[in-house]
C-alpha cells in the first residue's frame, strides 16, 4: 500500500513555468483523476512524479511500507522499482519486440522478477486479446490493444501505484469505456493506488473516487466525491469558468 504526496511543486521547461505551486495527494488504494484540457500541465506533473522531469522546487514523496521516500532524488528506473508503475502518454511500447516480449521486459526487472510467471498469467487472463496476439510485434496492434498492453506492462512490475496519462486519448468512444473499466477492475482487484490524468472526464469521474482540476498550472478545484458532482460543474471548472 502506498501513498503519493506532492507538495508545493513548481516545474517548467527552460524559462517557461508550467506548474505553479501544486499540492495533491493520492491515498493508498485510491483512484484519483487529474483533469485538465490540453496543455495545462498534466503530463508535466506526472513526469515529475516519475522522475523524468526535475522540478524547480517543492517535494514529492512516496509513503510505502512504513517508510517515506523522497522521489526527487531518484532516477526513473529507481522510482519504478519503488513500486510506481507508469502508463505513459504515447504508450512507449517497444515496437521491435513482440507483445509477450514487451511484458517480459517489464516483468524481468528487479521488482517483478520473482512473480513473473504469475504476473504474465494474470495479464493474459485479464486481457485475453494480448494472449491471442502474444507473438505479434507491438507496433502491429491497434491503438486500443496497445493501450491495454501498456497497462498490462505496468502490472508486470508488481506495482503498488500506477500513474496513468490519458488512457483514452486517440481511442474510439466504445474502447475508452472498456479501457477505463479495465483500469477500475484492476484497481479493485489489486488494491492499487492510481493517479490518472484525463481530459475526457466523463468516464474518468465514473470510476475515480476523487478528482483534481488543473488549469494553467494550478489546481483550481478539488472534488472529494466525484459521484455527487454534476458534469456541467466539472466541465465549467476545467474550462476555467466554474
Amino acid at each position: 500500500m502506498s501513498r503519493i504526496i506532492v507538495d508545493r511543486l513548481v516545474a517548467g521547461y527552460g524559462a517557461v513555468t508550467v506548474l505553479r505551486d501544486i499540492s495533491l495527494e493520492v491515498g493508498a488504494g485510491e483512484l484519483v483523476a487529474l483533469l485538465g484540457v490540453n496543455g495545462n500541465g498534466k503530463s508535466t506533473l506526472l513526469n515529475c512524479i516519475l522522475g523524468f522531469i526535475r522540478p524547480r522546487s517543492g517535494r514529492i514523496v512516496l509513503e510505502t511500507q512504513g517508510r517515506t521516500v523522497d522521489l526527487l532524488t531518484r532516477s526513473p528506473h529507481e522510482i519504478t522499482n519503488l513500486g510506481i508503475a507508469s502508463v505513459p502518454e504515447g504508450r512507449r511500447l517497444v515496437p521491435n519486440l513482440t507483445v509477450e516480449e514487451n511484458l517480459l521486459l517489464a516483468g524481468g526487472g528487479p521488482r517483478g522478477r520473482k512473480d513473473i510467471a504469475a504476473n504474465l498469467a494474470f495479464c493474459f487472463e485479464t486481457f485475453p486479446i494480448l494472449a491471442e496476439r502474444r507473438r505479434q510485434y507491438s507496433s502491429t496492434l491497434s491503438g486500443g490493444q496497445q493501450q491495454l498492453l501498456a497497462i498490462a506492462r505496468a502490472l508486470m512490475t508488481s506495482p503498488e501505484a500506477i500513474v496513468i496519462d490519458e488512457p483514452s486519448v486517440g481511442l474510439a468512444p466504445i474502447v475508452v469505456g472498456q479501457v477505463i473499466a479495465a483500469i477500475r477492475a484492476l484497481q479493485e482487484a489489486r488494491n492499487l493506488t492510481i493517479l490518472m490524468a484525463e481530459q475526457s472526464f466523463f468516464q474518468a469521474i465514473e470510476v475515480a473516487s476523487r478528482a483534481y482540476v488543473l488549469s494553467h498550472g494550478k489546481i483550481i478545484r478539488e472534488f472529494d466525491q466525484t459521484s455527487a458532482v454534476g458534469d456541467a460543474e466539472i466541465r465549467n471548472a476545467m474550462m476555467g469558468v466554474g
Binding site: 516519475l50 523524468f52 519504478t80 507508469s86 505513459p88 517497444v94 515496437p95 521491435n96
Partner: peptide, 16 residues
Amino acid sequence: RAVAYEERALQICGLD
C-alpha cells in the same frame, strides 16, 4: 534489443 528504440520503455520497466 529495446534500448535503441524506446529508452523510456526501459525506465518504466525498472531498468537503467
